[in-house]
């Protein structure tokens, strides 16, 4: 009986390998580093290429107890949300590969505050860190520059680095040995353009993760999904400006959705709140794993478990 030849793609490109965090040997203080990227094929098609590293799971920790988080989330974490150091430790215990420290928007933000908060979190965990500002370009600059100085040598991922503030963030990353999270609003071309602009400032692309902007399930998830598939295809086809590992934030986006956030006034057909909410985050994340995410920032410990199980399953070969 003639055998059917299974078609294999011969890709010429490879996703860049990027290492987050630095141990003492590399001039940092992290207990371990995390390397992502390096894929030479589409997600988890082990039969035609290498997937050298599983995607990393980052757990989001905020500088103070979030005012706008769903009770489902706050209950899951308990008291640690009062203290970023304790929270970071709990995140590590919950199975994070990386901790994301996010500054929320409040009146106490200052350069000094940013340095201190970073310091306590660095001291509390040995995991590599991603540090995000509150998401307002100018304020982000004001916080991330001192963060970059304070964390010199730690190979932090600084975010978000956008079209309008990339010069400042990239300069800070260049000066103090960090990485940047290059975020564009769900567009293949814009993502590529930002990578080019950053690379033109001479930040090595080994220090850039790209962030195509995440849409939650039901709220534009599929746009990000397709943009990621296109970026990954372009990367594998050899387009050097799309070969960055991709960071996504399904935790933040999914928990912003009404489906995850609230119980009040929702249709009965939506089912059990906690079940639905965790599913919302998990399914958003898992779709993005399928489309090539390399770093996933999650919020709920149960989602972390489930996404971890999925990643383990996809990596077992």
């Amino acid at each position: 009986m003639p055998t059917i030849e299974v078609p294999k793609e011969k890709w010429s490109g490879k996703v860049r390998e990027i290492t987050l965090g630095a141990t003492a040997a590399d001039g940092g203080t992290r207990a371990k580093t995390v390397t992502v990227g390096g894929e030479t094929t589409l997600p988890y098609l082990h039969f035609e290429g290498d997937i050298p590293h599983p995607p990393a799971i980052a757990i989001e920790v905020q500088d103070r107890k979030p005012a706008d988080w769903s009770p489902v989330l706050l209950e899951a974490w308990g008291d640690v949300t009062e203290d970023p150091a304790a929270w970071a430790k709990a995140a590590e215990e919950a199975g994070a590969d990386v901790v994301m420290l996010r500054f929320s928007l409040h009146d106490d933000l200052s350069a000094e505050y940013a340095r201190e908060t970073l310091r306590v979190v660095l001291d509390a965990t040995g995991l590599p860190l991603i540090v995000f500002g509150p998401g307002q370009a100018e304020l982000d600059n004001d916080l991330l520059v001192p963060v970059a100085e304070e964390g010199k040598g730690e190979k932090l991922v600084l975010g978000v680095c956008e079209d309008k503030n990339y010069r400042t963030i990239v300069a800070a990353a260049l000066a103090h040995g960090h990485l940047v999270d290059a975020r564009c609003p769900m567009d293949v071309n814009l993502s590529k353009q930002l990578n080019i602009l950053i690379s033109d400032m001479n930040l090595p692309l080994e220090r850039v993760v790209m962030d195509p902007t995440t849409g939650a399930l039901g709220y534009g998830m599929e746009y990000g999904y397709s943009v990621m598939e296109r970026l990954r295809l372009a990367a594998l086809q050899g387009d050097g400006m799309t070969q960055q590992p991709m960071l996504v934030t399904p935790g933040e986006e999914a928990w912003r959705a009404k489906e995850a956030r609230t119980e009040e006034g929702v249709p009965e057909a939506w089912g059990d709140w906690a079940e639905r909410a965790v599913n919302w985050e998990t399914l958003t994340a898992s779709a993005l794993v399928e489309s090539g995410a390399d770093i996933l920032v999650l919020r709920h410990p149960e989602s972390v478990k489930r996404v971890r199980a999925m990643i383990d399953a996809l990596m077992s070969n």
Binding site: D187, V188, N189, L190, K192, Q193, I196, D239
Partner: peptide, 15 residues
């Protein structure tokens, strides 16, 4: 639209 955003760069996103 795609071709347009791709061209919204100097000289072009695809050098």
């Amino acid at each position: 639209y795609d071709a347009f955003t791709s061209a919204l760069f100097l000289p072009h996103t695809d050098l």
